[in-house]
């Protein structure tokens, strides 16, 4: 992913290390290696690589993670703005999707 880092300091990912039970689900599901394991607890090592997919928060049984999950897609944001909804891909109306 050389040359492909997105904007720094923008993501909404928050992690409360004190709640971590060391199950490592966040490490498994994250497609961008944001977390690693250290002293039997998850450690957030690359927050700016997060794409806010929400997999970690969804799979954390201790609710130690939170993020406003959504699609990083300009077209979805435009469609959402036009329809006055959350950003959404045009999958429902049989047009282009994702």
């Amino acid at each position: 992913m050389i040359g492909m880092r997105y904007l720094p300091d923008v993501v909404t990912l928050e992690y409360d290390e004190t709640k971590c039970n060391g199950c490592q689900m966040c490490i498994i599901v994250c497609p961008h290696a944001v977390f690693t394991i250290e002293n039997k607890r998850a450690k957030m090592v690359d927050r700016d690589a997060c794409m806010e997919c929400g997999a970690c928060a969804k799979n954390c049984p201790e609710e130690a993670l939170s993020v406003r999950a959504g699609v990083g897609c300009a077209n979805a944001i435009i469609i959402g703005a036009i329809r006055n909804t959350e950003p959404t891909c045009g999958c429902e109306d049989n047009s282009s999707c994702c």
Binding site: Y6, M51, G72, C73, A74, C89
Partner: peptide, 20 residues
């Protein structure tokens, strides 16, 4: 090109909102 964010595998919603 901005619309290509949707096809990319590394852009976040917050980031795209910010640049838009």
């Amino acid at each position: 090109t901005m619309n290509f964010t949707g096809s990319s595998t590394y852009t976040s919603l917050s980031g795209v909102l910010k640049e838009m």
